[in-house]
Write a protein that binds this DNA or RNA. Structure first.
Length: 190
DNA sequence: AGCACGATTAACT
DNA sequence: GTTAATCGTGCTC
């Protein structure tokens, strides 16, 4: 399967977040491939969104979100977890979609090894968990995810009926002022 | 130069 | 429900 084109990501962040559900996230490391179907996403858009890192403006950390769409924004949090985002919108217009959960499809043995001690249901059901399972870290920050043969990309996957998509507030925003805290910018497949 | 805290997780009680 | 783990980032002094 070939990667989705950059034009898929050069759109409104909330639209991209919703449409990424059901797509296939692929991690290619040499001959080893691990992939899964995206089941949960969140949109973070604009300097005015007080939940988005780009509320701080252009900094070394947020720079990638100001660049072209279709790049990976990978950041480190709580001293131990990497979180994967996909950059959206046009250049100079910051935004990204956080990938929060996937359903494992390929590379199950690799995932089981990286998530040793955990039941299969909890292998990739959180943003910090799936980056562990897919071996995603800061070395992938800023790379294009639109390159065939690249280490990380997203391709077509499973069709999701509109009725199976649920929207709600984003997770972990205690302390973020309204209206941003309650924006229904989290999307989940039932 | 110092400091408070975070788009989390796993292991507790 | 509570909490430790663990450190880069952005803000204040």
């Amino acid at each position: 399967m070939k990667p989705l084109p950059e034009s898929f990501y050069t759109r409104d962040t909330v639209i991209v977040a919703r449409e990424l559900l059901g797509k296939r996230l692929v991690r290619q490391e040499g001959a080893s491939r691990v992939s899964g179907i995206i089941l949960e996403t969140e949109a973070y858009r604009g300097e005015e969104d007080l939940a988005c890192h780009c509320r701080a403006g252009r900094t070394p950390r947020t720079e990638v979100m100001y660049g072209p769409a279709g790049r990976a924004y990978v950041y480190f949090i709580y001293g131990m977890y990497w979180l994967l985002n996909i950059v959206t919108e046009g250049e100079g217009s910051p935004g990204a979609v956080l990938i929060r959960a996937i359903k494992p499809l390929e590379g199950l043995e690799t995932i089981a090894r990286r998530r040793a001690g955990q039941p299969a249901a909890k292998w990739t059901d959180g943003p910090g968990k799936l980056t562990r399972a897919l071996n995603i870290d800061g070395s992938l920050n800023g790379i294009s995810i639109c390159q065939p043969g690249g280490p990380l990309y997203i391709s077509e996957g499973a069709a999701i009926p509109p009725g199976a998509i649920q929207a709600g507030p984003r997770i972990g925003l205690d302390g973020v002022p309204e209206p941003w805290r309650s924006k229904a910018w989290r999307f989940v497949v039932n």
